[in-house]
Design a protein around this nucleic acid. Structure first.
Lengths: 212, 212
DNA sequence: TGATGTGAATCAGTTCACAGCT
DNA sequence: AGCTGTGAACTGATTCACATCA
C-alpha cells in the first residue's frame, strides 16, 4: 500500500511531526500549511502536497488540527510503536550513542551492544553488558532487532552490515565512513559529519583568505 | 565562478574523493566511472556528468588517473586547506565530538569549545579549555572560525546559531534536533539520527509484527 | 474570506546514447 | 576496443494556480 510515495516525502514527515509536537506543547489547536512552512523553511504547497499522499487531514479555510495531524503522522511513520536496536561498536562513538538520551523518548531502545575488543566485551555501559560480536548472529537470530546501529571502524563496517542483514535486520543506521553496499530492500541511513563538513567547505573556499 | 552547480553534485564529490583515497592507498593508478560507480552504488553516467561540471579529468578509453582526480577533487572542495571550528555545547555529545578522531586527519580542527554550564566551563577536554558561551562573541570576533558546531539542547540551538552567524561564521554543522532558520548564504548541515530512524520506521512498519 | 487539495506547468536531476578520442 | 564527455530525452520533484469548501 504505501509504495510509490517518493522517499523525499517520507524523509520530511518526521520534520513535520517534530514541529507539530512543539505546537502541541504550546497548546496550539490549529496550524496552516503557511505557518508550518514558515517555521520549517518549506513552501506551504510542499507541505500540502506531501500530506495529500496520505489523506485529507486539513479543513479548508482553517488549516490542520495540530493534535490530529500529529497523531496521523505518528501512525503513518510507525512512531507509536516501540523499536528495538542493536549497536555494534562500543568505542568512543558507540558509547556516546548508548548514553545519548534522545532515542528512548522517541521509542527507540537499544537492547544489545556488541564489540570485537576483548577489553570492552563484558563491560557494562548504561543498562547493557557489551557482548562479543562473535555472538551477534546467535543472539540476533534468537531475538531479532528492528534496526542495527553500526559504529565500528570503516574497515570493519561492511562486514558488520552484512552480518546484521543476514540476521534479518531490515534497517541500518550507519556511522562508519563508508559507502555500504546492501540489497535494495534494506533501509540505510548515514550519519557522516565529515562528509557534511567536506561539502560545506566547497562554498567556504571562495571566501576563505587566511589561516588562523 | 562555482555557481549554478547543483548542490547534490557538491554533496557527492566528497564521496568520490573518499573512494579515490582508498584506491590510491591500494596503489591503483586508473579507475573508470564504471568501477567507481560499482563501488559507490552510483551510475557511471552520474559520475561522469558530475565531474564534467569542473573539467575534463579522464582519458577516453582508459578512465581517470586516481591520484590526479583525487587531487583535483581536493582542490575543488577546499580539502587541501586547514579549517577551524568552534564547538558550542560540551555535554555528552559535545565531548564525543571533541574526542572523535575523524576530523583532524581531514583538516578540520576544533580550536574553541563553549558551554553555558558553569560546572563545565573551565574544564579541560582534550587540548581545549571550555569557555563560557558568554565570551563567544568576543573570542570569535577577535579570531573567527570557519565553521561552527552546535551541540546544545534544542531549546538553545537557534540562539546559538544566530550568535555564531553574527560572529561571521559562514557554515554550521548542527547536531540539535531543530529546523534552524538562517540567511540563505549560511551553509547548514544537519546531523540528526532520530530523524534518520523515524524515516526508516515508515518502511519497517508494514513488516513489523511482534514486540521483542 | 481564508484555507485546503490537486491537476497542470515548471523546474531540476538523472540517464541515455553516441560522437570522439586514445 | 574501451571509455570519456555531453547534448538530448526522460524521470521525478516542486511549485503554481485555482476550484472547492467551511
Amino acid at each position: 500500500m504505501p509504495i510509490d510515495i517518493p522517499e523525499v516525502v517520507i524523509d520530511r514527515l518526521p520534520v513535520y511531526a517534530r514541529a507539530l509536537k512543539l505546537l502541541e506543547r504550546d497548546s496550539r489547536e490549529v496550524v496552516s500549511s503557511y505557518e508550518l512552512g514558515e517555521q520549517l523553511g518549506v513552501t506551504p504547497a510542499q507541505i500540502r502536497k506531501d500530506l495529500s499522499y496520505f489523506g485529507r487531514f486539513g479543513k479548508q479555510g482553517r488549516g490542520y488540527n495540530v493534535h490530529r495531524l500529529l497523531s496521523e503522522l505518528r501512525q503513518i511513520l510507525g512512531l507509536e510503536q516501540q523499536w528495538t536496536l542493536a549497536l555494534v561498536g562500543v568505542g568512543n562513538l558507540g558509547r556516546a550513542i548508548l548514553t545519548y538520551g534522545g532515542f528512548a523518548p522517541e521509542g527507540f531502545s537499544i537492547v544489545e551492544a556488541f564489540d570485537a575488543n576483548p577489553e570492552i566485551v563484558g563491560q557494562c555501559v548504561g543498562e547493557l553488558v557489551v557482548r562479543d560480536v562473535k555472538e551477534l548472529p546467535d543472539i540476533l537470530h534468537r531475538s531479532p532487532v528492528d534496526i542495527g546501529i553500526v559504529a565500528v571502524p570503516a574497515a570493519a563496517a561492511q562486514g558488520v552490515i552484512d552480518t546484521l542483514v543476514s540476521c534479518g535486520t531490515k534497517a541500518i543506521l550507519n556511522y562508519a565512513p563508508i559507502a555500504a553496499r546492501v540489497h535494495r530492500d534494506i533501509r540505510m541511513r548515514y550519519i557522516d559529519p565529515v562528509l557534511a563538513l567536506q561539502s560545506m567547505t566547497f562554498y567556504l573556499k571562495s571566501a576563505k583568505v587566511s589561516a588562523r
